[in-house]
Amino acid sequence: MGTVLLEVRNLHAAVAGVEILKGVNLTVRAGEVHAIMGPNGSGKSTFSKLLAGHPAYTVTGGEVLYQGENLLALAAEERSRAGVFLAFQYPVEIPGVSNASFLRLAYNTVQKQRGGEELDPLEFDDLVREKLKLVEMEASFLERSVNEGFSGGEKKRNEILQMALLEPVLAVLDETDSGLDIDALRIVAGGVNKLLNPGNAVILVTHYQRLLNYITPHFVHVMEDGRIVKTGGKELALELEARGYDWVREEQAAGQLA
């Protein structure tokens, strides 16, 4: 088994005074792919953003260790530089900043932190063109403003491109399949698969099973009302697809009665 990258223990969190996470436990090791599934409002996206350091969420209990260190003590940018990556469900548009200069700035910031080599625009251009192939993007994407006017599929491919450049240790992909047609889904999933290696790990947060046809998870977790209520293998995702989430709820209720 790989080393433990992420250890979430009894995590409670609230937004604007309302408790959303009510005791999440999760262990992620190097080389693993975890899927977190669950109905809308179960707390999946809150969990993703919280791991990335979104300021809107307040941790009210529990702890999160990343590579043995207290992740919650780090600011969002420090988490990113330490190798935590969040692919956004809704990537933010930044008119006026070219994608190329944004990507290079992010790349060089992270490289500097990790003691790597920073690249000038020409060197970076070579690198990014190589990475573009991974998500089948045209070079013209680089000249456009960050995500501005991008289609849903283009935005998600741009997220995976950023993942490819920043080479995270722990990537959290928040509903990366939403808004994608089948072609885009295959491209995005293909990109993620190529980025998987024994030293990193991915958490796929998704509502539907279809992404899991292309990225095979080692573990599937069901989140319900701010907790992970069931964990299984990849076959659990198929069962959820076929039967919905209600049976998990019922099973849980029965378990609590017993």
Binding site: A52, G53, H54, P55, A75, A76, E77, R79, S80, R81, F85, L86, F88, P91, V92, I94, V97, F102, L105, A106, T109, V110, Q113, Q162, L166
Partner: peptide, 16 residues
């Protein structure tokens, strides 16, 4: 937040 998630400091994000 998006820019910080890509490693930019608060100041760098605001200036960008």
């Amino acid at each position: 937040f998006y820019l910080k998630c890509r490693g930019l400091s608060d100041a760098a994000a605001r200036n960008l």
